[in-house]
Amino acid sequence: MKSGSLVRLEISRSLRNKKFLFFSVLYPVLLFLIVSGSQDASSRVGGTDLSVPAFMMVSMASFGALTAVLMGNSERIAKERESGWVRQLRLTSLPGRGYVLAKTASAAVISLPSIVLVLAAGAVVKGVRLDAWQWLALTGAIWAGSLCFAALGVAVGYLATGDTVRPISMILYFGLSLLGGLWMPATTFPRWLRDLAEWLPTHAYAALGRSIELGDAPHARDVLLLAAYCALFAGAAAWLYRKDTLKA
């Protein structure tokens, strides 16, 4: 089996999973509309120069991508390991890196509709106004940044068992979302918690989009921090995959 064939298979399986599609594609849009509520462009987030709708639009687009790539990847891989599907794939011509790359690529493809729908809701329903280049850059930055969490999902899928993967994924999912400032501005946190949040990958991830909304280039610190986490997660995924191969 070739990597391209596996990517198509993974995308097809994800599209048939209605519960996964709801939580990864529709849920972030609904959450964005609920959280932003009646706030409009005149409502500002304390400590920033962004309106509440613009601030939460980036947060929920990032949250939706995180849902698709972290939750989807980790649970599916853990269950495939237990069912013997991964072992069967090792008997084909597909190299190990092809399996990991296929999982990461398919998750990234599924995350794109969630990002686009949240941004569309921000523009159409909440009146967020940006230049054309900002919309394109915003979509690209959030989508590219999600690869970091796709690698984390692969690592968790090889670390956990079918019974433990969901609680581990949920702790990471909600912990990173809450502490990284995706659900509420980190400026509202106590000082010690703000200092912690600034070192989390989700904080750097959302900061990419917020810089673009302000018309600036993403800060080098956020880019480097996210890249470092991506390398760490990808390295962990590769090591855990090799370890799992040796046990098989």
Rank of each mutant, 00 (worst) to 15 (best):
C148M: 05
S59L: 12
R16M: 12
C230S: 15
L30H: 01
L117V: 08
W85G: 01
G215K: 04
F63Y: 15
V52F: 02
G46H: 05
W133P: 09
V7H: 11
L224I: 11
L182N: 02
A65K: 05
Y173V: 03
A54F: 06
V7S: 08
I34A: 11
A227H: 06
F174G: 07
W192Q: 13
L117D: 11
K103S: 02
G98W: 03
A206R: 10
S5Y: 04
L136S: 10
K126V: 10
M60S: 07
G180F: 05
L136T: 12
W143M: 05
T161H: 14
A105L: 14
L200H: 05
M60A: 07
S146V: 07
L94W: 11
G215Q: 08
G175V: 06
R44F: 08
K126D: 05
S43G: 13
R242K: 03
R210F: 03
E80L: 14
G46W: 12
A41L: 07
I110F: 10
L101S: 13
R90V: 02
T202R: 10
T48L: 09
W143S: 02
K18I: 15
A68E: 03
H219D: 15
L232W: 04
A105S: 13
R8G: 15
D163T: 13
T92G: 04
Y158F: 15
L196P: 06
V58P: 10
L70F: 00
W133A: 14
S24N: 09
S59Y: 03
L240H: 09
R210T: 12
L89R: 04
L119D: 01
L91S: 12
L225G: 07
V69L: 10
V35S: 06
Y158P: 01
W143K: 10
D49C: 02
G122W: 08
K2M: 07
W239Q: 14
L33C: 06
L112Y: 11
A238T: 08
G127A: 06
W199D: 04
L119I: 11
A155L: 04
P201W: 13
S51R: 03
L182E: 08
L214H: 02
G157A: 02
P201M: 11
G215P: 09
A231W: 04
G180A: 13
G47S: 10
E10Y: 09
C230F: 13
M71L: 10
R8S: 06
